[in-house]
């Protein structure tokens, strides 16, 4: 079962939640889809961390064959092509690699070339297979890397945790698309509620079963918890604003491997998720 962990902003605790849930599972896969700033591997310190380069296909022009008909320019919904003074200009960064311009060119003046945009790493940390995508600096879209990360992991494991990028844009949609369940991580502030609402709307749009982990909980009133009660969203668990947990985390240690009380806390969450997903599977068939 695939479980995506997401939040409307960075720093709410997506990595904390997904790394620790993956660690309490008997056997699991952890996929870091935050390809612009992956950090899950810093906790796992995986062994045999091997990489594979990821490329996309972008059009390349044979100027001699171009008749200037502009069919490619007119076709491209992303405006990655312009025809200026008898010369076609291709904007690599704007191209979404759909290949349409190549299909439509009546002169066969356009062909595909490979462009490397990043890497996918894979390694092992005890019970967890760690997969990390990383986008090269300056590249505009991590979607092809996320696709590779999610589609290429070894099948047959019980739990796969997808540590999503922050926000609710295309890269997050790509990350949760095939998930069986979504965990939304929220901070106990008004700003946290705004960000929670963004991802809440997204998972509802995608019709994904979901619940919320309230992170950094204090004794005082929690606006994110209030939001969940109002919207009748299931609260999966509450993580205290706790000095010990913060220290472990900032030292890049996996809390559940260091202290049994955190093991118990995350195990309880995982059990609820497992039950919820099974329930979903039953009710969907």
């Amino acid at each position: 079962m695939k479980i995506a962990v997401l939040s409307g902003k960075g720093g709410t605790g997506k990595t904390l939640v997904s790394v620790n849930l993956a660690s309490v599972a008997k056997e699991s896969i952890y996929i870091d889809c935050d390809v612009e700033a992956p950090n899950g591997h810093l906790f796992f310190k995986p062994k045999n961390f091997v990489s594979e380069s990821i490329s996309i296909k972008i059009p390349i022009l044979d100027e001699k064959l171009c008749s200037g008909c502009r069919k490619c320019v007119d076709f491209c919904k992303f405006n990655a092509l312009a025809y200026i003074i008898n010369k076609l200009i291709v904007f690599d960064d704007v191209c979404h690699s759909c290949g349409g311009c190549i299909l439509f060119c009546p002169e066969k003046a356009l062909s595909e070339k490979e462009k490397f945009i990043g890497k996918v790493y894979c390694g092992i940390s005890e019970n967890v297979t760690v997969i990390t995508g990383i986008l090269d600096t300056g590249e505009s879209s991590g979607v092809p890397i996320i696709k590779k990360c999610i589609n290429d992991f070894p099948a047959g494991r019980e739990f796969t945790f997808i540590d999503c990028p922050p926000g609710s844009a295309c890269i997050v949609m790509e990350s949760i698309k095939d998930a069986d369940y979504c965990i939304l991580v929220a901070e106990p502030t008004l700003f946290g509620v705004h960000n929670l609402n963004m991802v809440y709307e997204l998972v509802r749009l995608f019709n994904k079963p979901h619940s919320v982990v309230l992170n950094k909980c204090l004794e005082e009133e929690n606006p994110a918890e209030k939001f969940c009660r109002e919207k009748e969203i299931k609260i999966l668990g509450k993580i205290p604003f706790d000095n010990e947990l913060g220290t472990l985390n900032s030292n890049a240690l996996i809390s559940v491997r260091e202290n049994p009380k955190y093991w118990d806390m995350f195990t309880a969450m995982l059990q609820i998720v497992a039950k919820e997903v099974e329930h979903e599977t039953v009710t969907n068939t």
Binding site: V73, N79, A82, F91, V94
Partner: peptide
């Protein structure tokens, strides 16, 4: 006509200008 483009509005607008 570039006003509602999904992306690359500047490129398309510049093409219109050219």
């Amino acid at each position: 006509s570039a006003v509602a483009s999904q992306g690359g509005a500047g490129i398309k607008a510049a093409q219109i200008i050219v």
